[in-house]
Amino acid sequence: MELTTVWFALIAILWIGYFTLEGFDFGVGMLLPKLARNEKERRVMYNTVGPVWDGNEVWVLVAGGATFAAFPEWYATLFSGFYLPLLLILVALIVRNLAFEYRHKRDDDRWRKRWDWALILGSWTPAVLWGVAFANIVAGVPIDAEKEFTGTLFTLLNPLGLLGGLVTASLFATHGAIFVALKTDGEIRHRARDMAAKLGVLAAVLAVVFMVWIQMKTGSLASAVAFVLAALALVAGLVANLRGREGWAFIGTFTTIALAVGGLFLALFPDVMPSTTDAAFSLTTTNAAATAYTLKVMTWVAVIFTPIVLMYQAWTYWIFRKRITVAHIPDPEDFTSLAPAETLEK
């Protein structure tokens, strides 16, 4: 197998890791005003992702870096053509991350409320825009002979792109609701389970329409198999959620997102950015790749360091595996003495 194909697959795996892990982070933030009824419940929701959100975010940094090193032409065209939506995602992630770090700094309801909205908006924005971006990457965008994107922001806001945004937002919200049900107990757990059931139906309908559209437009046999398995995994996850089996439900939505993202990359291959102007202008794994020497060095670095990163992240999830309840949250008057959310005992 050529190293260009290997690195295309590795980048796909990095994006799968990002969306499956950061996806439930986004979902928790998106559902904060719906699932939490008081300050202690809001603290519970923050603490479900407190120990892991920053580790989950590393996946997108590595994916971006790997794209830059392995496929510099892809990186250049993507980040110049999609500059505004990617900038909005970056700003949203920064604001969202500040919410985790600064919310507990002052014992003031208005202060905490402002940072709650930072978390909510900072979760909704990338949840929608990532779907818009990937729908356009797979379906194709106008690219000229110089490998330059010739469209505008409104080019990306087409029906398929907007549907992609709705799909990612609804899937992440469902994934996040199930994660809250898995990590909590008491009223918030049952509330999250009910919310997941409602959101899951919406996500399933939107996702099926989106995957059929992509498959008809640019799909392959491999992508069709991945999409069908993704749909089955979502159904299985929703059934498990209805039966109160949150662990299996989380595996179901996790697998759904993994297979759906994998299906998009399978539908994309061997292109990395198809051109709707002329197929001859499309960026592929061949004409967008770095030199063979660069890919060879990167492969050895990945072989050495990837297992270390995976073991560390798995260890983190194991350490913070216990459920959280309002009983673990101090009274409001004690908040000024709290350590950051990720250091609280689970």
Rank of each mutant, 00 (worst) to 15 (best):
T4F: 01
W7L: 05
I13D: 06
L14C: 11
L14W: 08
I16H: 01
D25Q: 10
G29F: 01
A36V: 02
E39F: 00
T48Y: 03
T48E: 03
G64H: 02
E73G: 11
F82Y: 14
L86H: 05
L87G: 09
L87A: 14
L90V: 14
A92H: 08
L93G: 05
L93F: 10
I94Y: 04
D107G: 04
D108Y: 07
D109H: 08
K113S: 09
R114P: 00
A127T: 08
V132D: 08
N136L: 12
V141K: 07
V141H: 07
I143K: 06
K147T: 10
F154Q: 11
L163D: 07
G164K: 05
G165R: 07
A177D: 02
V180A: 01
A181Q: 02
R191T: 10
R191P: 00
L199Q: 05
A222R: 09
A236G: 14
G237N: 04
N241F: 01
W248V: 06
G252N: 08
T255I: 02
I257C: 06
A260F: 11
G262I: 04
A267K: 04
A289K: 07
W300N: 15
W300H: 14
V303D: 10
T306I: 12
M311P: 07
A314K: 10
I324N: 00
P332M: 05
D334P: 06
T336A: 15
A341G: 14
K346F: 13
